[in-house]
Amino acid sequence: MDYLAEGFLRAVRLILSLDRELTGIILLSLKVSGLALVLATLLGLPMAVAIGFKRIPMRGFIVSLFNAFMGLPPVAVGLFVYLFLSRRGPLGFMGLLYTPSAMVIAQTILAFPIIVSLCHAALISVDPVIRQAARTLGATDPQAAIAVVKEARFGIMSGVMAALGRVMAEVGAILIVGGNIAGYTRVMTTTIAMETDKGDFELALALGLILIGISLLINLALHLVQQKGVRKLV
């Protein structure tokens, strides 16, 4: 038990000293996951709107497909992205493998179905009379759709937070496509996995504590967003 306590204490000291390596890893993690989240939201929200409001063939099947893809295995996503970006792959000419960009692509793919599914669920739960009301007040079809998006804002934010939670904690995909290169593609989760393998728990524990803290913060934010949505009605 001593090594656990000792490792824990050293980890806390590392956090308090704002170790350069530690902060670099944290910032890269936030940058990669944050960018992936922004991209997934920019692509996923319009997709959710299209599925929710446009008359598209096989809508039920598409919704089921996105629901199923919410649980995509990160390692499998990493493998497919690797194959596409590797030198012999169709996108190999871009030279993105083992770069933060490759990690962003992999995490965007993981976050995208979560955002589409949860945003779609939030949008279709809005009373259809809202869209009609917007049109009666002079909204064009896109403006009426925006009115519905605004009504679904708390549900949409919950979906985005859930996707953030998923990509922040993800290790398999970014390990494969990023390569865990020190100072370049090494992020919190891949560092924890590597340091644990090495039996060096100091950095792993420090990052583990921070990751748990971030996860708790995301959940707290999610809770506050949902509470705000409920409170508005009380």
């Binding site: 809202i130 009609q132 009301a133 009666t136 007040l137 002079g138 009115a147 009504e151 009605l233």
Partner: peptide, 15 residues
């Protein structure tokens, strides 16, 4: 359409 308007039975108040 912007010269006319309809008040729906459910109104559809925005949040």
């Amino acid at each position: 359409r912007r010269r006319i308007s309809l008040v729906l039975p459910g109104v559809g108040a925005f949040n």
